[in-house]
Write a protein that binds this DNA or RNA. Structure first.
Lengths: 178, 178
DNA sequence: CCATAATGTTAGCCTATACTAACAGAAATA
DNA sequence: TATTTCTGTTAGTATAGGCTAACATTATGG
């Protein structure tokens, strides 16, 4: 398959991923989740929730008890927690390291949390762990980055980074950006 | 709007973004681009390309000359190059810093390149510039990370990072991951 | 210069995912 | 208990974006 088409080839679509995570979160927050709770949480019609959740039941990510209360299957729990893990990691990276403002960090995270691979997610987690450690060298480097970012937006003509300006980061073909 | 719904609220959808970038790339590679060239490049039917590209013409991102050769409008050029810029930056981050394997880095990048905001993209660019600079402290820190990643996959019980293990990175609610 | 090939477009179909409207059954409450 | 409200579901509609098939037009080359 062409790489760009893998967009649609995820375990779960964007909406399905959010339905599943919503159920997970609702069970955590209030101990149970029904279709109407999911609808309210996600701001969609009850009918949409009903249909989307049934699709997840058919895929064996969720099941219903006799009173229509939703439960996570082991599979569903695993997948939901994978997504949540990526979300947490991404958001922290955007917010705490890149210093993206909280709302934008939330929006960006929400868009891509279910799209990054396990490999990338795991490596990002390791990176954040490392960059959040108390190691004095790490701390110093990060502080330098944040300080430079302030005095020198985008680090465009940054004295520290002038050796790696846009010219070296982008292949010649793209540099016509003008 | 609920944050999770902003997924659909981008300037361009996933497919439209790829159509636009394909035209940009084709013009760069072979000097021209027609619907059939885009179809071949993206592995889709000519009819799909035709319709998708007309949508981009209506939005004034592309125009056609009298022989149906496609041209980028200034708007289209700007948008395409924003996307390409994010793609380059993301891929370098995944590949050169996180050390994700090239194919997976490509897939992940392709999925999210058009989704990250300008703010996040700009901050990521600055970060990569900084992390790619010749600054000896930066180099040392990165090398330490890569070395630790090898000896200690995921940095799970890494001596350097034990102060910031999963427990501190994840809110209690999510830690039930088990 | 005519035949074959390539290209662009239209039409109809499919899936996914949202919506509203309508309605049946369960739960809550006056 | 009777009524109202909540819940779940179905039906029909819309949009987006793929697909194939068919056909007209344009290019290419024997």
């Amino acid at each position: 398959m062409e790489v760009w088409k893998e967009f649609e080839a995820n375990q779960l679509t964007h909406s399905a991923a959010h339905y599943l995570v919503a159920v997970h979160d609702l069970i955590g927050e209030q101990g149970y989740a029904r279709a109407a709770d999911v609808a309210k949480k996600l701001g969609i019609a009850r009918s949409s929730a009903s249909m989307g959740l049934h699709a997840l039941i058919e895929k064996n990510y969720l099941k219903e008890d006799t009173n229509k209360f939703l439960q996570m299957t082991p599979d569903g729990k695993r997948v939901a927690e994978e997504i949540i893990g990526k979300k947490v990691v991404l958001k922290r990276f955007f917010q705490d390291i890149l210093k993206v403002k909280p709302y934008q960090a939330e929006v960006d995270t929400c868009k891509i949390e279910h799209l990054i691979s396990s490999e990338t997610g795991a490596n990002l987690l390791a990176f954040i762990r490392f960059m959040s450690s108390a190691d004095p060298q790490v701390k110093k480097v990060l502080e330098k980055f944040w300080q430079l970012s302030e005095t020198c937006p985008g680090l465009k003509d940054c004295p520290v980074c002038e050796t790696t300006c846009l010219k070296e980061l982008m292949p010649a073909k793209l540099r016509v950006v003008s």
